[in-house]
């Protein structure tokens, strides 16, 4: 789709956002993750509101750059990217499609909802490889801020779990 300053619409901008993948979890788009919070458009500029998953997430700079690039490539020159901290990002915003994509990529999607105060307690995480529920937590912190490290007791494979947050 070729967008120009004249025909760009909010919908078209959202579609472009769907094409940007998270640099650390390339099967998920930034809209699957719920990182793009809002898009505002007026005659002179487009403003994209993004929220960080974790305060120190190093992917945010890359994501902002990719947003700028794709809009720029689509003929939109005046772009503003605003970081929005509140409401704080939560995995509750992750789309169902996103969860399915995570699973087939080998990462267990978040279990439960973040407002459930028991989410930090013992929970059942399904092994994304053999679908066994007999798994154990190896470490609360994994290869990126948003993941924990689990292992399957049946197929013995270690796997990443996308933490409920």
């Amino acid at each position: 789709m070729q967008l120009t300053k004249e025909n760009i619409t909010i919908d078209a901008a959202w579609k472009l956002m769907n094409e940007i993948n998270d640099p650390e979890i390339p099967v998920l788009s930034i809209t699957d993750l719920g990182i793009v919070r809002d898009i505002k458009l007026n005659e002179i500029e487009i403003e994209i509101f993004i929220t960080p998953t974790y305060s120190g997430c190093p992917a945010m700079n890359v994501i902002a750059m990719n947003i700028r690039m794709i809009l720029w490539q689509n003929e939109f020159k005046k772009i503003k990217i605003t970081q929005q901290l509140s409401p704080a990002w939560t995995t509750d915003w992750m789309t169902e499609a996103g969860k399915q994509k995570l699973k087939s990529y080998g990462i267990a999607p978040p279990v439960g909802k973040s407002f459930d105060k028991n989410y930090l307690e013992k929970l059942l995480v399904e092994c994304p490889h053999c679908h066994s529920m007999n798994t154990k937590l190896i470490s609360q912190f994994g290869s990126t801020s948003c993941k924990a490290l689990y292992q399957c007791n049946d197929c013995l494979e270690p796997f990443d779990y996308f933490k409920c947050h």
Partner: peptide
Amino acid sequence: LEQDIAISNIALDLIGQSRN
């Protein structure tokens, strides 16, 4: 290794907070 990653993740969270 796991604890090295954990403590580095916590460091990253804190430095991220300080940036805000």
